[in-house]
Design a protein around this nucleic acid. Structure first.
Lengths: 99, 99
DNA sequence: TAGCTAAATAGGAAAATATCTAAATGCAAG
DNA sequence: CTTGCATTTAGATATTTTCCTATTTAGCTA
């Protein structure tokens, strides 16, 4: 589900915001034009994908980034492609002339 | 568009197949239960996202992986999160007793 | 408890996606 | 130039996603 979760600009922006520090839903919502229920919904999707965790802080809900899915599964997906890219670079002949 | 392009299991599987070597649409389609027009559509989306390139080979169309978007923009997106994960690991106190 | 605030849920409308079948296009080879 | 194969485009439908407003839940504070 992580790829679907990331396939939304608002959600990627939310993650980026949380990079700095955990935030309440309201704090997050302040950075968006979207209504708060929509933010809440996006957070639920991110949570389901394991990209954030939530914690009750009095009457606030504090959302924090969780990097495990990004540094694990997503990185694992990406690795073979990077690998191949490296192979291509390595195989590229050195040029002496222009270009 | 790259994130949307990746938010589909068939499309991710197609990319994975192309990791081995360039393939025609028919060859790709052989690995799926999906009808060929659907595969063609997925390939168009991948192409628009810059994840594959196409080349006419006689009456066949040869599709090949392009890793630039993965090793560039996607990697750039991912990097700060990996960075933070590393920071968290570094800051974690050594434990002597139980948790 | 009553009133206030934060957040989540419900319900619904609009837009985007996925996938199929059928038809069109493009190339190749007799 | 006609026939055949590979691929794409069209058209249609079902599903999913997104985002809103209104309502509900939960906790704080007087």
């Amino acid at each position: 589900m992580i790829f679907k979760a990331l396939a939304s600009e608002p959600r990627r922006r939310i993650l980026h915001h949380l990079l700095a520090e955990p935030m309440t839903v309201g704090e997050i919502a302040d950075n968006f034009e979207m209504a708060m229920p929509s933010i809440s919904r996006h957070l639920a999707i991110l949570k389901q994908a394991g990209l954030v965790r939530e914690r009750k802080r009095g009457q606030y809900m504090l959302y924090a980034l969780v990097t495990d899915q990004l540094t694990g599964p997503l990185y694992d997906f990406l690795a073979p492609f990077c690998e191949q890219a490296r192979a291509i670079v390595a195989a590229r002949p050195r040029r002496r002339g222009r270009d």
